[in-house]
Nucleic acid binder design. Structure first.
Lengths: 127, 127
DNA sequence: CTAGGTGCAAAGCGTTTGCTCGGGG
DNA sequence: CCCCGAGCAAACGCTTTGCACCTAG
């Protein structure tokens, strides 16, 4: 039986993800945690991000062709990434309709990774 | 001005993607092309896959947390990946509704990368 | 002739992992 | 006192890139 034991490093990683609402990458989280605990290592950050994501305490956003990002908001939702400034915006999407559509082909949906790429409001107004 | 010049290696890469309908990865394409031309290099395969995808002659499927796959079918469509056997299934999805939804937030959709992960018909029947 | 393409190998990037030591329970 | 977790660095998987040579036009 595998128990999960308390560690201040893990707490720090969790808190960092929950506090920074900009969908930080693992490297960014590493930098941020380092400001608090200058001895924490990359390996620890990655291990804890994986563990926390597995436990459902944080959300992993898989960005195609880029580093994964992490989100303290647990409620299932999707992301729109701006190709100019890299901003990540949350949005809701009804997973049900798609799931039913695929069920007719015999495919059982378990996880949806949808990332929309485009231009955000800010960048549109600048252009 | 940049012209695109003929090369037998590029033709081979294109043909390989168009012929193999299983959504091969770059590495698989490398292996397949090597059977025809044993001197072709990884670099050439990657360079040509990028070029062909840019020109819209093939489609790149970005698989979160895995190697990109390539598809000779140009018509926009999405993919369902089986977490057990890795099979990639095509499906259609109405991009319009989502695009309109995001437009209300001021976000301009340009590219949708949606990958559903789950279990395919085959694997479900085996389980 | 010359710009674009190739082969090769090294580097890049994000991430994982083996090892040994430290500390929670 | 046991074993999970941390720190460190090396390795990994996928992809890109610098360089010298080759070749289509």
């Amino acid at each position: 039986m595998k128990t999960t034991r308390f560690s201040k490093q893990r707490e720090l990683v969790l808190k960092t993800v929950q506090t920074h609402l900009v969908h930080p990458t693992a490297q960014e989280i590493y930098g941020l945690t380092r400001e608090v605990d200058p001895t924490i290592s990359m390996g620890t950050v990655y291990r804890n991000l994986n563990l926390l994501a597995e436990q459902g305490k944080i959300l992993r956003i898989k960005v195609p062709g880029g580093a994964d990002r992490y989100d303290g908001t647990i409620r299932p939702h999707n992301h729109a990434v701006c190709t100019r400034c890299g901003m990540v915006m949350d949005y809701d999407f009804n997973f049900e309709a798609l799931s039913e559509q695929l069920a007719t082909s015999g495919f059982k949906c378990e996880e949806l990774n949808m990332t929309v790429r485009g231009t955000c409001k800010e960048c549109l107004s600048k252009a």
